[in-house]
Design a protein around this nucleic acid. Structure first.
Lengths: 109, 109
DNA sequence: ACCTATCCATAGGAAATCTATGGTTGTGGC
DNA sequence: GCCACAACCATAGATTTCCTATGGATAGGT
């Protein structure tokens, strides 16, 4: 029944890292940011987001600390580490290479 | 340990359909074609390819028949159906939309 | 005789995502 | 005061997709 995916599998980590490269942010804010920047095309479900953030923490690509939001709420803010920045660069490179390769397959010739 | 993927997850069906849209082909030939067109960036493992072809058959997007190769071998040739052609169009549209959206998230601004 | 390339296919496991839940806490409307 | 809703976090379970590993058959070249 061909379910429409919310995003391209394998790109979530990259999107999160990229978002955090602009500014530290909490989970909910990351989801909103990606949705907004993609003009509502990409939706990051919470059930995908939080496990992804756990992975990124484990890999040491982000670090987290509890803080208060401007709206007076407890929230966990994530910050990109140096390793995370390297990883982002790596993923960007590979992604672009993949996209270029797929483009070659898709082009009519 | 960041394993380098052979292709972008979620794009295999589209790549197969696109390849078959050019000409009917057998499995092994599809894999070679994708590898060649992508200039060796994308590799379709046989363990991914044949299950994918079964899925496509089940969905009615391709049909298959046994024939002889130019090299005198038994091989199963797959042909795109009308439904498969529609599906390919759909996947292409969604893919491009996704890529554009990801591009917006990745761009610096 | 052997090796390699050509060809098909499945089983089992790993990884990523979604659905479904469940919970806490501010704020604004009534 | 109460209720609905938005803002936040998180996990469990199912599903899907892909990879690794395996097994098999056959043609052609050396």
């Amino acid at each position: 029944m061909a379910k429409r995916p919310d995003l391209l599998p394998g790109t979530l980590d990259m999107l999160i890292l990229k978002t955090l490269s602009r500014a530290p942010m909490h989970g909910y804010g990351i989801a909103l940011s990606i949705k907004r920047q993609s003009e509502d095309v990409l939706t990051v479900e919470e059930g995908s987001l939080y496990p992804a953030l756990q992975r990124l923490l484990l890999q040491g690509w982000v670090k987290a600390e509890w803080k208060m939001t401007e709206t007076k709420r407890r929230a966990r803010f994530y910050t990109l580490t140096a390793a995370g920045r390297r990883q982002l660069g790596l993923e960007l490179t590979q992604f672009e290479q993949m996209i270029a390769a797929i483009g070659r397959v898709l082009q009519d010739a």
